[in-house]
C-alpha cells in the first residue's frame, strides 16, 4: 500500500491504495467519483477517459501513483454546481447522449481536443474521438455538438 497525493478537480486528496492501483479504480472506489466508467479492461472503449494535465487518458490503464503531482480532471470537475458548462449543454441539445455511458469519457476527450485545436475540422473531430466508442448515437450528434462549440454556437 502507498499513500498517494492526488489533485482531482482542483482539490487535494490523500488516498491509500496499492502501488498497482489503476487511476480509474482509485477515482471510482476510493474517491467515489463514478463519472468515469469502465466499459472494458483493455483501453479500447474510452468510457474511462479523464484528463491528466490536460491530456485525455484512459484511466483504466494508468497507474494512480503515476498521476501524483499532476492535475486530474474528471467529468465531475465540469460545470458549476447545478449548472452544466457550454459543451455539456451542447451535447444534450444535439442528442449526443443516449444511454450516456460513454458520455463522460466522450466529453473529456472532446475537451482535450478543443483545447488542443479550438477550430477542428470534421475530420479532426473524428480523429480526436478515435479512442472513444459509442454504440448508441452513431457519433454524428457528438461531432455536431463539438463543431457547434467551436463555431461559438
Amino acid at each position: 500500500m502507498a499513500l498517494l497525493d492526488l489533485k482531482v478537480n482542483g482539490q487535494e486528496a490523500q488516498v491509500e491504495a496499492p502501488d498497482t492501483a489503476l487511476l480509474l479504480d482509485v477515482l471510482r472506489e476510493r474517491l467515489f467519483l463514478t463519472g468515469a466508467k469502465r466499459g472494458c479492461e483493455t483501453s479500447h472503449c474510452g468510457c474511462c477517459t479523464v484528463r491528466v494535465d490536460g491530456m485525455a487518458v484512459h484511466s483504466c490503464v494508468v497507474l494512480a501513483a503515476r498521476c501524483q503531482g499532476k492535475e486530474i480532471t474528471t467529468v465531475e470537475g465540469c460545470g458549476d454546481g447545478m449548472e452544466l458548462d457550454r459543451l455539456q449543454r451542447l451535447f444534450l441539445e444535439h442528442g449526443a447522449v443516449q444511454c450516456g455511458y460513454c458520455g463522460p469519457g466522450m466529453l473529456m476527450a472532446a475537451k482535450a481536443l478543443l483545447e488542443r485545436n479550438p477550430q477542428p475540422t470534421l475530420d479532426e473531430v473524428k480523429k480526436g474521438l478515435d479512442g472513444n466508442l459509442c454504440r448508441c448515437t452513431g457519433y454524428t450528434p457528438i461531432f455536431d455538438a463539438i463543431l457547434a462549440y467551436s463555431r461559438g454556437a
Binding site: 452544466l84 447522449v97 463522460p104
Partner: peptide, 20 residues
C-alpha cells in the same frame, strides 16, 4: 426537440448505472 430530463445527470457523470 425537447432536451431529455435525464440528460444533465448523465453528462455530468452523476447518473447511477449498474456498476455504480
Amino acid at each position: 426537440p425537447v432536451v431529455r430530463p435525464d440528460g444533465a445527470e448523465m453528462i455530468s457523470g452523476q447518473a447511477v448505472y449498474g456498476p455504480d
